[in-house]
Amino acid sequence: MPRDLTSLPVELPVWAAPMAGGPSTPDLVRAAAHVGGLGFLAGGYLPPADLAALIARVRAGVAVFGVNLFAPNPVPVAPDAYRAYADALQPEADRYDLVLPADTATEDDDAWADKLELLLRTPVPLVSFTFGLPAADAVLALQDAGNLVAQTVTTPAEALAAADVGVDLLIVQASSAGGHSATLAPAVPLAAIPLPELVAEVRHAVPLPVVATGGIADPADTAAALRAGAHAVMVGTALLRTHESGASAAHQDALVDPAFTETVLTRAFTGRPARALRNRFTDTYEPVAPLGYPALHHLTGPLRRAATAAHDTDLIHLWAGTGYRAARVEPAARTLTRLAGHPDRADLRPN
């Protein structure tokens, strides 16, 4: 049975988004909680045991936090298209003495069943899902175990589908958001709808609480989303350069490098649409990249890791929302309270 948000004692209307692959750290989650907000652990890509360890670390310090999982929504890739893309990328891999697996595409569900079981055994205050919809019986089981359940959506139609499986709240993501789009239909081009307008459309379609995300760069953006009907906003890119961020040095530096002048939506890195700083990789490989998640994610992963270690920003997935220039080097508590319009509040609680 869906519940309201009164079970979440959260005062600050600016939350810290889950950012898979390293940027979301326990310290970032704790910083959000210490100023009355809410932060998420990003369960995507993590082995279940590693996720369990992170949950235990966070739970030891704060009471209110979330965990995000990638719900299965595979995007199959044709074998011929996969091989052609691997062959196109191999010259880049040669620079790092890597041999890409051109003949075997890796498909998996990110240990979905094991992570779901983890959250049934050890419930957390809030569980959110991205990429796919969990089944209604899974949502009910999580709720019965004590988890509040959220679904990330990008359209009113997706919001209706999420309501049908019984979630408690919606995370409404505009196409301006950095990193992967949560779209349930990766082959369909994303509509460039301003976040406040999208929030209003979803609120009109579905009577569930809404958390808004995508392109939040200043207090005016927060206020506009709240006026449109959001209960809170959630920010990711704005936190990438904070003291608690786990983003790589190359990623953080690129956000303020004048050589990077815009963001683009691209499937070239992972086979799903995601917003990143435009670089040589997006320019060269977006035109030839097939859809295919998680196969392309696994294909390009070794190359991206090698490029990150070498600070080679030509080849790194530099996830960033449209407001990326607003990311500052400061404590995460200050970023969150500043975006909420209360910059002095960061000093009221321990960071």
Rank of each mutant, 00 (worst) to 15 (best):
L208H: 09
E262A: 14
Y96F: 15
P101N: 11
T308F: 05
P209K: 08
H298K: 04
G178D: 07
A177D: 00
K115Y: 02
T322F: 02
A310F: 04
V153S: 00
V58H: 11
A32F: 00
T284G: 10
H298R: 14
T266D: 08
T213I: 02
A150K: 09
E244P: 01
A185I: 01
Y293C: 06
P47H: 13
V211I: 12
L208V: 11
P101T: 06
T282H: 08
H298W: 14
A306P: 02
A289N: 08
G61E: 15
L348Q: 13
T284V: 14
V99K: 14
A161P: 09
T152S: 01
A306V: 04
T261K: 10
G215Q: 04
P273W: 03
H298D: 12
G146D: 03
T213P: 01
E262Y: 11
D144E: 14
A161K: 05
A192G: 10
A205K: 00
N279C: 13
P196A: 05
T130E: 01
V188H: 13
R325S: 10
V64M: 07
T104K: 10
T154A: 11
L46T: 13
D27K: 11
I193R: 01
A333S: 06
T242C: 09
P13F: 00
D97E: 09
G39H: 10
D221N: 08
L184F: 10
V139N: 04
R57T: 14
H243F: 15
A259I: 10
A141I: 12
E201P: 01
G166A: 04
A174I: 05
L190Q: 12
L170Y: 06
L277D: 03
A78P: 13
Y82P: 12
T122W: 15
P18S: 05
T263W: 04
N279Q: 07
L38C: 10
A295T: 02
V206K: 00
G39A: 11
G292T: 01
D347M: 09
V167C: 08
E197T: 07
R241N: 05
A307N: 08
P219I: 04
D108Q: 07
A162C: 05
G236K: 10
R275W: 03
A225T: 03
V288G: 00
H231I: 12
R304C: 12
P23T: 10
A307E: 07
N279I: 11
T130G: 00
L184C: 04
T237C: 07
V29Q: 03
